[in-house]
Amino acid sequence: MSFNYISQILPSLIQGAGLTLQIFFWTLILSIPLGIIVSLGLTSKIKPLKWILEIYVWLMRGTPLLLQLIFVFYGLPIIGIVFQRYDAALVAFILNYAAYFAEIFRGGFQSVSVGQYEAAKVLRLNYWQTVRKIIIPQVVKIVIPSIGNEVINLVKDSSLVYVIGLGDLLRAGNVATSRDVTLVPLLLVGLIYLLLVGICTLILRQVEKRYSYFK
């Protein structure tokens, strides 16, 4: 395994990792807020809204992400909805991950005791003051470990975009492996994933620590 060869293929792997990271960040940035909104809908008193969102969550969590990806890119054009590869990937990932985040946040909101809302109410805090100052900090603390799991899953799940022909990290490695008949690119791909997950883990640990001042 010469350094020369590694330095030759590294640029293409890094380029692939760039796309992996793009999908990772856009999915996180958009699916977390969407998940919070859906979680509020899931606990809503408006029954039809609740049912529709429950079906959405059931579909997204009950079918493989790979199927959803194929469905959005290859299936939807049949009924006239056409996405570019990259957009199709984002749509599928955001919808899928928002469903998981929604369930996590629903659990988080429900585990804050009614007493907290009542204490805020008798102190005459309004709804948004209560949510902002009292409820959200407690929910965030509760959901961090579960969100962390999903974040790490997302790093690796992003490799599924391979199936719709996007040039991510995994594809870059696979192309080099079949061209040069060597395992080195795949090993490097593995290392880069480990590195990305390692960085995520460290960041998540810091976030958890920041919230450890209360119990």
Binding site: S113, G115, A119, A120, V122, Q138
Partner: peptide, 13 residues
């Protein structure tokens, strides 16, 4: 003003 049975202090503050 109210003092609750289990106090309901805000744990994050």
């Amino acid at each position: 003003g109210v003092v609750f049975q289990d106090f309901n202090l805000f744990p994050n503050l």
